[in-house]
Design a protein around this nucleic acid. Sequence first.
DNA 1: CGTTATTGTCTGATATTTCAGACAATATGT
DNA 2: ACATATTGTCTGAAATATCAGACAATAACG
Lengths: 266, 266
Amino acid sequence: MSDGAIGLIETEAGAVPRNGERRRGIDRVIVLLEALLRHRAPMRVGDIARMIGAPRSTTYEIVNSLLEAEMLENVGTEGYVYFGRAMHLFGWAYSHHNAHYRRIIETLDRMAAETGETVQLCGLRGNKYIVLDCRDSSGPFRISSDVGVEVPIPWTASGRLLLGHMSEEEVEDFIPPGDYKLPDGRVIAPAEFFSDVALARQQGFSETAALADRFTWCMAAPIRDGHGAINKTLCFVLPVDTPEARRSELLALLCERARALSLAGS
Amino acid sequence: MSDGAIGLIETEAGAVPRNGERRRGIDRVIVLLEALLRHRAPMRVGDIARMIGAPRSTTYEIVNSLLEAEMLENVGTEGYVYFGRAMHLFGWAYSHHNAHYRRIIETLDRMAAETGETVQLCGLRGNKYIVLDCRDSSGPFRISSDVGVEVPIPWTASGRLLLGHMSEEEVEDFIPPGDYKLPDGRVIAPAEFFSDVALARQQGFSETAALADRFTWCMAAPIRDGHGAINKTLCFVLPVDTPEARRSELLALLCERARALSLAGS
DNA sequence: CGTTATTGTCTGATATTTCAGACAATATGT
DNA sequence: ACATATTGTCTGAAATATCAGACAATAACG
């Protein structure tokens, strides 16, 4: 095995593929790309095969097709592959076709330039939180987090805002029980989390200090769509020891910019 | 038909699919995504089917799979689809896994901020030129070009640099004859183009004035890889009437930054 | 209103793709 | 040097995904 722990990814649909069962090439491609995204590093074909639970011969076949299309590309000389140039182009097309998204990205750029802090755009993917885009701090204290990696919602300030439209019961059904457990072993009481969500809704912003890790102070403000719903949030990720004066200044900026990006009610 | 001209895309391999012939789902996916990239706007399933030469029933099947994976997403309410969020995440992973590419992007950002001009990163895709990334001018005179769209190499300043490693004969074999014809009908003499390529190699930069269109002055400088080869170029796209003093100042900046991004020889 | 084109969903049959397994050629470890 | 694991490539055969075409339901048009 090349490195790290590589486990079998269970696909949503068929739990245990019975023997003699086959899977469609397209589905293999989808699972493969998602596996690569989670792994966040080039992988070898053999490891990919194990990770997505596909036969090696099939995996070679698929990988070669994707390589030819530049959706994947070879990295290094040891048979490693990772996302290719075509993916960059598709992703670029996605993020620029839509005027609203373009404005958001411009704001992200401007805020990063003005403040020098780490700025993120966040949202949900299923019942997990993900960073959709970010600009890393230019300072020596660089906290960077990976775009697209799924994180339990209760670990995040943004998560508290993004559940604002749900009742306490809905939130309870929505969050997998294990997601209240933090990386350091502490467990957030669900009741406490529900009241955090309510507070975030009332305040119109959310903050967490040293929650998912000991070093960061996160603050999030909602970007509302045309119906007033919160699909995305704008966040600062600061060193936890940032002085209060600086924090409140940044919070005000964050809320102002997020409000400016929100669409008028329909 | 919804809009615009939608022609049949010929796939590289099988010229005319004989009747009774089938195509693999994966290949359909690849052709579909490339078609969507060229079209640069949301499309309806029926139009996609026509464009990629696939049966409608197959196209629905594939599109629905990709929608579920968020590789595509619905746009509007009229059955239009375009690239989805997952593509953004895959593309982001591509462009950040590699330290060199990250440095290039930072340079792009900085140059755009410092000069306010349109800056591009360009490269080849097969025997065509494409813009890999860009930062549009902030000024009122905004010339934007689409990332990922294939353009004949002789239309561009970058193209002249990117062929620098080829002999005159190789260039002749490489460029499709039709690519010497400019959008306005003028035709570049191949001999003239070859000497442009030689000049670009000798100077270490390339400029074109009012070539692909009447309004732009383009200047490109090479980014060299570890072997001294030119894979990518850095460009400014300026209004054609930019004063000479400003142009030479920008050219100097461009060459300096491109050189800084080039990797030391191995 | 009749005519024509489109959309989205189903169906059954067959051409094809996925799959298990074998293979030689390297690596890796003891 | 031996045993073990891995890589990349092929093969034949069985399971099935792709395909043509039909269908009802709208939409577009004169």
